[in-house]
Simulated scan of single mutants.
Amino acid sequence: MRRNYSLDFFRGVMAFCVAIGHYFYWNGNFSIPLSFILAVDYFFILSGFVLAFSVLNKKEFNCFSFAKARFLRLYPVYIFSILLTFIVLKLLHHHLGKLDFGDIVRILIIGEILPFVQSSSFIFFEPLGLSWSISAELWVGVIFFPVLHFFDKKANQLVFPFLMLIILICFFIINNYSTNYMNIHYHKFDKLMPFGLIRALLGYALGAFIYIIVKYMQNNSTKKSENIISVIQIIIVFFIIYFYAKNDYIKNNEYYSIFLFSLMIISLSFNKGIIFKLTNNIIGNWFGKISYPLYLLHPVGIVINKEIIFSDIFSIPALLFYIIFISIVSILTHIFVENKFLLYFKSKSTKTMKNY
């Protein structure tokens, strides 16, 4: 399947939304919508969609190879971002406390969202805090996708109700027990279950669910009208902007962003429509490539901008510098860290890495 750069484009847009949102909120300026926190749900749903395509089109599936591939895919940028941020904070004389053994284990296994005992004096600095979503993607994924593959190959008629059940249960839990709408990650549903894991499971299940829908529509429907798909894409983008792009948006609407994201991914997956054509290009390609480094590296950009470069961090020059700086750092990280390691791992285990 030819890569859909439009889906990558919106992943990059969501990463920029998070980066700009944190720039303002972490510096005490609440003049922009808090809805940037919903971008993480787009990441989960898109990952679920893409991984479902990979997993469900396999005759042979090895859960250990899958887990290894996912870990190696996420780890280089993750650990580089942590080390770079740690070094910058130390050079700026930030007090970070002392690492204990539990902290080291949690960092090394990308285990931020796992229920470790939080008793150390080590300060949880960014991007470690942001890595709850990376941790959730890894650990939920290595359980969810093997189970999904098993159902698909051994009990295919159960895949659809299995995914529906997960979506309904997760949505019900978040909708009824969330302490802060969708702005929950380390918050606990119970003593052992952070909401972040439930949020990731919901996104993965939705992504897999819409992959099955798209596959069915592509196999059983007549040729899709370009004009109809364009209208659908415009309407979806309009509703996303209408509900979430204002500072006083209704928090109750946060729950429905996941379904709007799902509809957007479905509409773009047909490789047609005006929004697809505008974003399925080299810009979309690069937005996708830098989205992961950008998500983890923007905290160090905020620190550098605030403590070294500008006194007025909300000025136009300061904001432009921040956006250009994190873009360049993310591009360099993709080229010299992410891509280099991916090529290295592929050379060591081509079959494993190319499949996931």
Rank of each mutant, 00 (worst) to 15 (best):
R2F: 01
L7G: 04
V13T: 07
M14F: 05
C17I: 03
C17F: 15
I20A: 07
G21Y: 14
W26D: 12
W26M: 13
N27I: 02
F30W: 12
S31I: 06
P33W: 08
S35P: 06
F36M: 04
D41T: 12
F44R: 06
I45F: 03
S47E: 02
G48S: 11
A52L: 08
S54Y: 07
K58S: 07
K59S: 15
A67I: 12
R70N: 01
F71G: 06
F71E: 04
L72H: 14
Y75W: 15
P76Y: 04
I79L: 14
L83Q: 06
L84R: 00
F86V: 06
I87A: 14
K90G: 13
L91M: 14
H93M: 13
H94T: 04
L99G: 09
F101L: 15
V105Y: 06
I107G: 01
L108W: 15
I109H: 04
I110D: 02
I110G: 04
G111A: 09
G111S: 08
P115T: 01
F116E: 00
S121R: 09
F122T: 07
A136D: 01
I143K: 00
V147C: 13
L148A: 04
F150I: 08
D152R: 05
L158A: 15
P161C: 01
F162T: 02
L165A: 10
I167G: 08
I169T: 11
F172E: 11
Y177R: 10
S178V: 10
T179V: 14
T179C: 13
H185C: 10
K188Q: 06
K188P: 04
A200H: 00
A205I: 00
A208F: 13
I210S: 04
M217S: 06
Q218G: 15
T222W: 01
T222D: 05
K224C: 07
S225T: 11
V231F: 14
V231I: 15
V237T: 13
F239W: 14
I240S: 08
I240A: 05
Y242G: 07
D248R: 05
L260S: 05
I266H: 00
S269V: 03
N271W: 00
N271M: 13
G273C: 06
I274K: 11
I274E: 14
N281T: 02
N285C: 13
N285L: 09
S291K: 01
Y295Q: 10
L296W: 01
H298V: 10
N305F: 00
I309P: 05
P317I: 12
A318K: 08
I323W: 00
V329H: 05
V329F: 15
I335Y: 03
L342F: 15
L343N: 14
S349M: 09
T350R: 13
